[in-house]
Design a protein around this nucleic acid. Structure first.
Length: 280
DNA sequence: CGGCAAACCTGCGAGC
DNA sequence: TGCTCGCAGGTTTGCC
């Protein structure tokens, strides 16, 4: 389930366990994820001190003391599991295990293997193929209504699809696109180019609001979750429209029997949820 | 270049 | 119980 808020939550959870610590052991349990691991992956990481754990879009970036940067993408099903000591043997789909000198291990587990890892350098980071074309961070200063409108201008594709395009804005996924469009009262089927001016302001604000609230929720529920299981995972969240087809729209008082409530449609092969009465 | 479907891979819930 | 089908939070590729 990792979209921007989940990746941010994972980074915040990992940082206190990894920052300032040395990777005393790294186990790579298979030759590839979505892409092959880089050459000498284990050797380039072992013995390095982790200086920073941060996020760009949906990527986790770990800066190491020799200038190396480890890039991790969680894909659809990737998780980072924190344990106080090394498990006796890796579990199913435990593809990489990082161990620091305190004994703590961080295990990358990914059933579907849509995740990936790569190594680059701090100097080469901005030009890395996976990061080069990314749009602005939606919670950053460069993101605004006008900035969004500029990137949507001329696009005939539905706004739903445009917002999933990471070069338009970085970090939104299928859930939060539906949620943001609901909050902005904009129809997911409307063409991207029709969103400018006040509509773009509204949408940019909705994106910030939805992501910001999700990060807050992730932060709070994450602590409970980790105490219980030692796992750094995904928070439970109440969505307004996502996965709520047929249920009443939380934003309006119209009759569900008459409107059908929240609609599920398919756009470019993926589910979109919205209230046709409220979103125009 | 823009837009869309398919592909990558496994797991899970629904329905028979 | 066990099978098949459809669906899943992401991204890239290839085709029109």
């Amino acid at each position: 389930m990792p979209e921007l808020p989940e990746v941010e939550t994972v980074c915040r959870g990992l940082a206190p366990h990894l920052e300032g610590r040395v990777l005393v052991r790294v186990d790579q349990n298979r030759p590839n994820l979505r892409t092959p691991f880089p050459a000498d992956f284990v050797a380039r990481l072992t013995g390095r001190r982790v200086e920073s754990v941060r996020r760009r879009a949906k990527y986790i970036l770990m800066g190491l003391d020799d200038g190396t940067v480890l890039i991790v993408h969680l894909g659809m099903s990737g998780r980072m599991l924190i344990a106080p000591e090394r498990p006796e043997s890796p579990g199913k789909h435990d593809h990489v295990v990082f161990e620091v000198e305190t004994g703590t291990t961080v295990t990358f587990n990914d059933a579907r293997r849509f995740g990936l890892m790569d190594l680059t350098t701090a100097d080469g980071l901005a030009d890395h193929p996976m990061l080069r074309a990314l749009g602005p961070e939606p919670l950053g200063n460069a993101f605004s209504g006008p900035a969004l409108a500029e990137r949507l201008a001329g696009k005939m594709t539905p706004i739903k699809a445009a917002l999933l395009d990471q070069s338009v804005v970085a970090g939104l996924g299928n859930i939060y696109v539906s949620e943001a469009l609901f909050l902005a009262r904009l129809s997911p089927t409307r063409s991207a180019a029709t969103i400018s001016g006040a509509k773009a302001d509204r949408l940019a604000a909705a994106i910030r609001e939805v992501l910001g609230r999700a990060i807050e929720a992730g932060g709070s529920s994450l602590r409970d979750y980790r105490q219980a299981s030692g796992e750094l995972g995904y928070f439970q969240h109440q969505f307004a429209v996502y996965d709520r087809a047929g249920q009443p729209c939380p934003g309006c008082t119209c009759d569900v029997a008459a409107t059908g409530g929240v609609q599920r449609i398919v756009q470019s092969g993926r589910s979109t949820f919205y209230c046709a009465a409220r979103q125009r």
